[in-house]
Design a protein around this nucleic acid. Sequence first.
RNA 1: GCCGGGAUGGCGAAAUUGGCAGACGCAGCGGACUUAAAAUCCGCAGGGCUCAAAAGGCCUGUGGGGGUUCGAUUCCCCCUCCCGGCACCA
Length: 875
Amino acid sequence: MPQEEKSETTITRPERPNDERYDAQRVESKWTERWQQDASIYAAEPDSAKKKFYVLEMLPYPSGALHMGHVRNYSIGDALARYMWMSGYNVLHPMGWDSFGLPAENAAISANVPPREWTLRNIANMKAQMKRLGFAYDWSREVTTCFPEYYRWNQWFFLKLYERGLAYRKKSKVNWCPKCATVLANEQVLSNGCCWRHEDTVVEQRELEQWFLRITNYADELLRDLERLPGWPEKVRTMQRNWIGRSEGTLVDFKLDYGPEHKGFGPAGSTITVFTTRIDTIFGATSVQLAPEHPIVIDLAAKNPDLRAKVDQLIAEQRKAKEAGDIGEIEKHGVPTGRYAINPFNNERIPIWVANYILMDYGTGAIMSVPAHDDRDYEFAEKYGLEIRLVILPISNDPEETMAEPPLPFTTHDGMLINSGIYSGMACDAAIKKLAEFAEQKGIGKATVTYRLKDWGISRQRYWGTPIPMLYCAKDGIVPVPEKDLPVILPDKVEITLTGGSPLARVPEFANVTCPRCGGPARRETDTMDTFVDSSWYFYRYCDARNDRAPFDSKIAQYWFGEKGIDQYIGGVEHAILHLIYSRFWTKFMRDIGLITNDEPVERLFTQGMVIKDGAKMSKSLGNVVSPDEMVARYGADAARLYSLFAAPPDRDLDWQDSGIEGIQRFLGRVYRFFVRYPVETLPATPLQPRQETSASQAAPLCPQARALQRKLHQTIKRVSDDFQGRWHFNTCISAIMELLNAMYGYEDSVAQSSAKGENETRLLAEVQRDVVLMLAPFAPYLAHELWEMMGEKSSLLKASWPKYDPELAKEEELEIPVQISGKLRSKVVVPADSTEEFVIERALADEKVKATIAGKQVIKKIYVPGKMVNLVVK
RNA sequence: GCCGGGAUGGCGAAAUUGGCAGACGCAGCGGACUUAAAAUCCGCAGGGCUCAAAAGGCCUGUGGGGGUUCGAUUCCCCCUCCCGGCACCA
């Protein structure tokens, strides 16, 4: 890196330009180059003397080019990072690439480019775009997940998970996307049954052997700790809560009835275990309903061709509904098996049915049907004429209502048991406990918890991903790759197709190995890992990105993560369940193996809204895509960034309008013009005094207009600072700066050209200009840096102190108080800010318009809200 | 069905604790500058009625209906529509 060039460019103070026109392209390319030459300005190292702040934006997939959603995401993060730097924090602000994944393989197939080459080319392009946009990332920590230096630690983690029984292999029904030609995790299937990448492609079910991670071991903690994340959007927490789907209930064994004409049910066993959340209604159970794929049903159907045909029909209906995404609206069908089960609480013999609304993959795939107290059971019983038996009555304060027969089905918990043997008369909630205890004592059931969350299937029959470090030996079975042999390198020369299973299986030199235990021949696992593994822990790697002995150093991670994790994480809400639940799981696992001490990865999460155009999501098919490159070329990076913050609050969707960014471009030009037009010739030779002192010396002698400008300045600093610390409505921050600029022009028009302009006025103007630059720095860094240099400042703007406001100087001296008569605005009076209530009301009553309005009426009430308004109620 | 978010001028939006609705910007209109245009600077602007016009005055207005209050975009109840998530989850 040429050192001498650098020092030359920073020393000279450029002449103030004569041209008022702001040439964004010239200025921005100048600073892009300078920042390029001194990348270390954004670097941070652990420093116990300074408060840390870890601000992170979700790392992108290198698809080829940034889109406006990226620009918005990074503009928010960059503004925050710059503000925190200026507020004296030790800021970590890294960036990287989530660079494994299917699109690279598709490119290989359609354009015949190797995935690695395609990916690295895209990364180079997007990195250049980021630099052109002026984002302040510490590139020395760049993480690229497709490099062996990174993915070897995925493999290392996998071995640790395997050692602890948290990674296991099992054959099961899995989601298969025909277009991806691979298995998908449950989290990657949309609610309409389609693939998350191919929203028009229905996922099929296939029976395959897969590697799973036992995320369900952490289900309870993942749920419980959501309460400890007040810095997360309620929406995301709710989504995760729904996804985990914890449900407390009871397992109850129903014995099969071996009546005289039956010889038992064979290997499937002699009991049916049902799961219920309402064991209090068990005396109202009038049938047992089984999922069509329940083992007992399969067993029965095997011996009964007629039943088998009917069950196959139910299975087909269920599958069809699932694939159409409307399993919730399936028309209920069922068939009786002709067999019976015994209700263990009343020894009653009830029929066993098979029904298409019972799901095999939830609970036990079997329920007790209580038509009187469950909507679905009621509908089903009505249809097939099954008995409906009332066992719960409402309890109410109204004696008439209590004990009255409710309309069916009656499904609430607020009730009392009847027709329930010794439990009659108990309240529902108490009965649930008692009945579960009894079942447990008798060995016929127990209280239990069921989750919707399933273990995470991570095997992918794809090439461009982390090889799973496992071997299969004819003699030793499943053998993990020894840690010393990591990384298992992903080979380069592989023929990629979307058919015929894992591409790696067709690479003999990769697939054929010797067993490290017996030395005999073994086969390597040729599936790769889900790319969500890569992104589950990447933010820890940023802390210590070049470590080749461990995923990262625990001490360094502890500094940056602290007790509560990343201070601010920013990204799209589309990862609310996927990435954000996986990485919480990974954090808990890493804590359990002693790598880290925090329980959660992210303290505060912010999900920004989408960028849309003409009311619709940007997409190639709609032809409404706005290209960041084009915006930067036309309006400049500052304008693109500032507009993405100005057009809407960051959590809302943003409708992109080209005319809007033109307005922002005008604003930037107007700022620049002010500095060129009204240069402050007499900058204080010494750095500006601490603010209080300057203010005190300025407060008195300023002319009224100057005082008004000073007040506006301090009010603006307050508004912008408050917003950074609170609600992040950067759109109003920018409005506030615009208002200040308007006031600056107004001030120059009215005063500064006149003879009233004295030294204090000049000093004030210098102060205002300096603070405007400081406040613009997080939002429009290019212009801010240029103006900073034009003002002759030598220090780094990045680390310059954020301006402080003086509440005294921000205060109004006179207030315009609205006067309402009976709640309607009728007039306004101007009073000194420190006026008493009596004085303000007296002035209000003396006002001509007020007098006219209340003439002939009697004032019955006088309300004064200090500093806000007067309301005179008349009769 | 359940959960979360939203609905304010022609448009994007603001109103931070119940206190002047529409800040700021876009589009629009008018003026200054200019041979002209662009650029720039200044001004007007929710809707309606009144007034010859202007100034002014009056009425009305934050998805709809009701309530609490001196006062409601803001709090409470009911309803409509839009966006997102979950869904015969037993």
